[in-house]
């Protein structure tokens, strides 16, 4: 996704329009038509978005909530069953397995990704020849498609012919069946996510780094701060708003992870023989569109939202502490 969202910014986004000294001045020819134009046209301009939202946003969300209280399957009528689905979900080991997988892959991918992106941005921020070349180079993964990434990496992680096992072989490691274990499949999927998004985050950090006043660093140098200390004590705290933004985006993206784990297992929803890398999004599709338990799938969908909410709030409160309290 993209970058102009930032919680700090969001709060003060709707700045009151400037030039309010003109308020109340009627434009010439303020007949009925002109007044209609002033009063109604703004709503006309925003109406396409809100019409779309009503049909493809509000309706699906509300109806998902309603469906989640029903026993609703392919065969048979939908029947209101209250909280039954939710009760069933709480004791559903497959669901909790999917939650653990999703959160595990998310942590395994996001933390190294953002730290690497910070270091990479710091390196890109140095004076170096061929700046554009390096910036474009780190962004290249972004323009490949998710499916392409998943397909190529799945082949690279192949047990018998994959290049990664071949390279590990030089270090005396036996061929690993990456799909078979939780840790190895999570790691493989996390690298796919990281490969695609690290450069993108680095470019965003880089942009923010360039707005940090250089005299801060000069003053720190004079005081004898090492470059490493300057990085952690000046750069990182100054980047806090942007870091919050990237964490926010990674959380939503990471918790809805779908394409990579699906293609890691030939396009199936099961996430391996014992569901070792089945994510919540895959579980929704499996329940709703492979087993046609619509009501139950809707319940899982709402829990996914709750999961995202918890993730966003938790990460936000964690990241807010960066450089704070000093």
């Amino acid at each position: 996704m993209s970058l102009n969202v930032d919680t700090g910014r969001v709060r003060r986004a709707p700045t009151p329009p400037r030039g309010s000294r003109h308020a109340g001045r009627k434009p010439p020819g303020s007949g009925l038509l002109a007044r209609f134009d002033l009063r109604v046209t703004p709503y006309v301009l925003i109406s396409p978005y809100f019409l779309l939202f009503a049909v493809f946003g509000f309706f699906p969300l509300a109806f998902t909530l309603w469906t989640s209280f029903q026993k609703y399957e392919l065969a048979g009528e939908a029947r209101f069953t209250g909280l039954d689905n939710y009760v069933k979900l709480m004791g559903d080991a497959d669901f909790w397995n999917a939650v653990v997988n999703t959160v595990g892959i998310f942590i395994l991918s996001t933390i190294p990704q953002l730290i690497l992106a910070l270091l990479l941005a710091n390196a890109l921020n140095k004076r170096i020849r061929g700046r554009l070349f390096f910036r474009l180079g780190v962004l290249i993964p972004l323009v490949t498609s998710v499916v392409a990434v998943a397909v190529v990496f799945t082949q690279l992680y192949g047990r018998d012919y994959g290049m990664i096992n071949w390279v590990l072989g030089f270090f005396g490691v036996d061929n690993i069946a990456w799909q078979n274990e939780k840790w190895s499949s999570w790691l493989a999927i996390a690298t796919m996510v990281d490969w695609r998004w690290t450069g993108y985050n680095a470019i965003i950090y880089l942009a923010a780094m360039q707005t940090i006043p250089k005299d801060l660093y000069e003053a720190a140098s004079i005081d004898g701060a090492t470059p490493r200390r300057q990085f952690w004590q000046i750069t990182v705290p100054m980047l806090r708003p942007v870091i919050i933004f990237t964490v926010f985006v990674s959380t939503i993206g990471g918790l809805t992870l779908f394409a990579e784990p699906v293609l890691f297992n030939n396009g199936t929803m099961s996430g391996g023989s014992t569901g070792q890398f089945q994510t919540v999004a895959m579980y929704i599709v499996e329940k709703g569109f492979r087993q046609f338990e619509y009501g139950y799938a809707a319940t899982v969908a709402w829990m996914l939202f709750v999961l995202i909410l918890i993730g966003v709030l938790l990460n936000y409160s964690l990241v807010r502490r960066i450089g704070g309290g000093r």
């Binding site: 969202v5 969001v10 986004a13 709707p14 925003i46 978005y49 809100f50 939202f53 493809f56 946003g57 309706f59 699906p60 969300l61 109806f63 998902t64 469906t67 939503i252 809805t256 779908f258 999004a281 929704i284 599709v285 709703g288 569109f289 619509y294 799938a297 809707a298 969908a301 709402w302 996914l304 939202f305 995202i308 966003v312």
Partner: peptide, 22 residues
């Protein structure tokens, strides 16, 4: 209205509402 748009940006609508959309 602008605030409501910002709020909904946090919701992965196409994934959450996949059953009714279908």
């Amino acid at each position: 209205l602008l605030g409501s748009i910002l709020l909904t940006m946090m919701v992965p609508i196409q994934q959450m509402g996949i059953v009714p959309l279908y």
